[in-house]
Structures are given as C-alpha cells and as structure tokens.
Design a protein around this nucleic acid. Structure first.
Lengths: 225, 225
DNA sequence: ATCGGCAATATTGTCAACAATAATTACAAA
DNA sequence: TTTGTAATTATTGTTGACAATATTGCCGAT
C-alpha cells in the first residue's frame, strides 16, 4: 500500500483522508479489508485521532462501512449494487448532458471536441483500449458543463468514487473502447448542436450499454466460480 | 436549541451527530451559525472528540461547511442552489416513481393508497395545509418502493436532509397542499396501474411545480428586502 | 472431539492536556 | 482619527492515556 500520494493539505487529517481514499479507490486496500486505527496511525506517523476522522469521513462517503465497537471495513460492491449505481448514473448523467448542451460555453465545447480528437488519435496509434482516466476526463467535463453545483458534487465527489473503485478491479472486462469512442463522438455532436434532448438520450444509452456489458461480464465471472 | 432528541444509540459520537443534525435541519441552529467545538461539547456533557467526529460527518453530508483552523458553520442555501437541488430531485425522484411502479408490492401500493386517503381525510376535516411530515412520508414510501439501494440513500440520506432544512425555514410560503393532494393522487394511480412512464412523468411535474412555486416565492421574498 | 462459558487480549470510544493556527485587542506612529 | 503591528486571547489540530466493548484463546463439561 502506497501512502505516497499525500498532498500537502493544511491538516494532517485531510491528508490521511485523501491517502486512504485513493488507496481504497485504486484497490491498494482491498474491498472488505479491515481498517485498523492503530495500524493506519503507525503507517502515517500520527496518532489515532486524525485516522479516526478520516475513517468517519470515508464512512459518510460510503467507501467504508463502520459498525460501532467493531471497526471499519472497505465496502464490497455486489452485483446488484453496481446495477443500482449505474441506474442512478444513467439518470443523473443524462441530465448532466442535457444541461451541458444548454450551458457549456462555446470554448468549452471546442475543447471537448479536441479532447475527443486526442482520444481518437491515441486509439488510432496504439490500437489500445481507451484509458480509464481518459474516459473519466471526458465525462467530468460534461458534468462540469451542467453548471449545476449539486449535480456536480453528487456525480464527481460521490458516485464516481465508487465507480473508480469498481473500475480498477474490473478493467480486465471492459474492452468496449472502440464503441465508446463512437458514442463519445455522438455526445460531442449533440452538445455542439445544442440539442439537449439528443445529448441526454445519447448519454443515457452510452451508460446503459456500459452497464449492460459490465453486468454481463460479472454474470459470466460469477458462473465461472 | 434543544438537545432533547438524543436517541440512545450505541456511541456518544453518533448521538451527538444525530442531535446536531436534527438541530440544523429543524432550524434550531440557524444557517450560517458557527459550530463551536468547546460550546457543543459543554452542551452535550462530553469532550471535544465526539463533537469533532459529528462535525466531520455533517461536513461530508454537506450540512456544514468547514475550513481548517477556522471552524465549521451551518451552510446557507442560496436561491440558485435550491434550484439546483430541485433539478436533481426531479430527475432522481422521477426515476424512483418509475421504479416504484415496477417493483412495489401490491400490499405496499394498497398501503400507499390508504396513506393518501388519510391525507385527504385530514385535509377535509381541518382544511389545513398538508403537514410537511405527511408529504415527506408519502415521498419516502415511493422512494423505498424503487428497491434501488443507492437511489434510496442518495435521496433519503442526502438530498432530503437539505430539503428539510430548507422547508422548515420556508414553510410559510408553501400553501399548495390542495394541488399537492391532487398530484399525489395521480401518482398513486399511475403506480396502481403499474404505468412506470406515467408515474415518472407525473412525479416530475409534481416536483417541477413545487420548485417553480418555491423559486417564485423566494424571488418575491428577495425583492421585498 | 465438540460445544459453551470464562479469562486474556486486542480494538475502539472517550477524555484531558498540549501544540499550532487564527482572531482580537492594545498600542504606537502617521 | 486612522492604520499598521505586536502581543494577547480564543479556537482548532494533535497527542497519549484511560475506559468500554468486542474478539480470541483456553479450559472444562458433555
């Protein structure tokens, strides 16, 4: 487990929170793993206080499940929970796309198009899957474009944490980068046209298909065991 | 400020969290008010530790804004933030209604109808506005009926806290109980018919109208000052 | 050999003191 | 009077010790 990524925030508790969060999301701390206060405190050269604060925060963020007097464990995402999350994501991010088509500045739309061009070029050259990071970047920009602060927080701070955590583990399945690239283009197009209805629909389908692929992959994964 | 509503949870920090949360949501602690650790600790006959934990949790729940070394204050909801929240609520709860129409058990639907009958009877007798609590109860049942655990948490644990906090302050405006009663009936009907599309649409309109009324009321309220 | 209860151990919850940072006040100079 | 600065005060951040609870291991009974 790497506690390297500790940004120099103002307070120790914040740094520890971020370190543990990235460790969970990146899979360095496995789902279901126990978070021992004493152990973590030792690891970060601190006392248990700041570690406790970090765990409490991550508990509210739903990355950690805590039961009194027993301790905290990293959550494990079951199949039905993944499905539930994707269902919400479809609704929320569809709305984000719709709002983005209405509210994004012309410059931001140009930048979005350029980002997509980069992704295409990258895929053309390397023939590689789209990087998860690139995909997230694309979606983040559209969410930001919604200009709805509450929606932005819900998606970026909350839902996407869970998504990242899950994606890291299951990146082996996801080989739909070619399809995704095409779908992204359609989204960019709809936003360029300022067609909020189309943007919403295309985004919803994009996410819906991803969800279907993942659910299917998990299904076969489960039957294999 | 009443710290009376302390349920006997297993841990002190939890009790304090709940007490402060209800105090904020009910308006006993005013928006923008400072949350002093020492003062709260005294108030709850505890040390600062549990109070700090409570504040950290409420911070992640977005009921409190915290800046390092300065302290925590209760958030203040601006007009545009209310609009943003209602926009998200419309999308999420529309989805909840759709899912409820698909997944609610027949018994639960009967119970929902009965609840509505009660509301109607109550209004008939007293001619009163619908109680905010009754309204929340109605919506909660439908959200639960969605059977989507992530959606349920997002709405009940997160969004509705903010809604409650705001509603308490502004209950003076909201006199649309007669309209709401009718709209609720339409929602119940759509769910009884298992018409998920209709349920979603009617719910969205219900919330959209409420949002419009509130935005309008805030507008006039602002110009008055 | 397995199961249930008791002691030992480990872990979490709470507390009070200390350190570090921000807010306030007092004071002096312009 | 006003303004900038330094000292004071108050508040938050962190720590280690102690209390309360859960887990583990041991022992005896069936």
């Amino acid at each position: 487990m790497s506690e390297s990524s500790a940004k120099n925030s103002t307070t120790l508790a914040t740094k520890i929170t971020e370190s543990i969060r990235t460790a969970i999301v990146s899979g360095d701390i496995a789902p279901g793993a126990k978070l021992s206060e004493a152990q973590l405190a030792m690891q970060f050269n601190s006392s248990r206080g700041p570690v406790r604060e970090a765990i409490r925060r991550l508990e509210v963020e739903r990355l950690v499940r805590h039961v009194p007097h027993e301790g905290a464990r990293v959550i494990t995402l079951e199949r039905n929970e993944i499905v539930a999350i994707y269902q919400v994501r479809e609704s929320l991010e569809g709305m984000a796309a719709s709002l983005a088509a209405q509210h994004m500045s012309d410059e931001d739309i140009v930048a979005l198009r350029q980002l997509w061009e980069q992704h295409r070029a990258h895929q053309h050259q390397t023939g590689e899957y789209m990087q998860a990071d690139g995909d997230f970047d694309f979606h983040y920009r559209i969410i930001q474009g919604s200009r709805n602060p509450y929606l932005i927080r819900q998606l970026c701070d909350d839902l996407y944490q869970l998504l990242r955590m899950f994606r890291y583990r299951s990146s082996r399945f996801i080989s739909r980068s070619a399809v995704a690239l095409t779908e992204h283009e359609h989204i960019v197009y709809a936003i360029e046209q300022r067609d909020s209805q189309l943007a919403e629909l295309v985004m919803r389908r994009h996410i819906s298909r991803a969800a279907r692929d993942i659910a299917q992959a998990m299904q076969t994964e489960e039957t294999k065991l």
